[in-house]
Design a protein around this nucleic acid. Sequence first.
DNA 1: AGCCGCCGTTCACAGCCTTTTCACAACCCG
DNA 2: CGGGTTGTGAAAAGGCTGTGAACGGCGGCT
Lengths: 105, 105
Amino acid sequence: MDGTVGRMVVGDLEIRPSEYVAYAGGRPLRLTVRELDLLTALAERRDRIVSREELYRVVWEDQYRRTDRSVDVYIARLRQKLGEAIPDREYIHTHFGFGYRLSSE
Amino acid sequence: MDGTVGRMVVGDLEIRPSEYVAYAGGRPLRLTVRELDLLTALAERRDRIVSREELYRVVWEDQYRRTDRSVDVYIARLRQKLGEAIPDREYIHTHFGFGYRLSSE
DNA sequence: AGCCGCCGTTCACAGCCTTTTCACAACCCG
DNA sequence: CGGGTTGTGAAAAGGCTGTGAACGGCGGCT
């Protein structure tokens, strides 16, 4: 993935794509490469609704197939890890029929 | 739906079809796809009386049947959500026997 | 090589949200 | 008032999403 920025902050999240790390409330998250790529893609588009297709194109660098559930599965894993790190806070919102949105509020 | 514009303003409403969002008084509305499509169709024709048939053709992309109440039901839902967001203000007007009109005054 | 652990992909199915349909009340207008 | 039109809650139908689990590939280690 390219086009990344050195450092991005979304609420209590800090993402450093160039260093392949992300922090939640100061503590490092244990993310895999795909998870970090997906989180980065969302962070670069914070507060915007991003379609599954766009996410797939950017993170997987391939053409999206309507039946592919990869994005959903990785969203679930991100939610899980973010939820463990920072409870009582929803970062990733579902937009039914479109995709997802990472919120900074 | 196509032919949409990047950004439309009607009174305190702002609609951004390309981003799949609409704001009422600065706050985002929680609209479904159909609701947003219908609001967009009305906004594109603001201050004009639009027939049910035209709305159905544009939003549902299908031929309108006189007995179909879908447009009415979605108008009701839009009114509900707009009313919650901006009370004491009627945006969608009924024109008996013809259709509806979104007003900007 | 064989084993092990981790990661990415795919599948299945429950649960959820949206859309459509229906029924009846309320409304408009001649 | 009467007939057609519109408003709206509720239920049915349809489609989408969440998520645990299974599978296979890959790399590291002994």
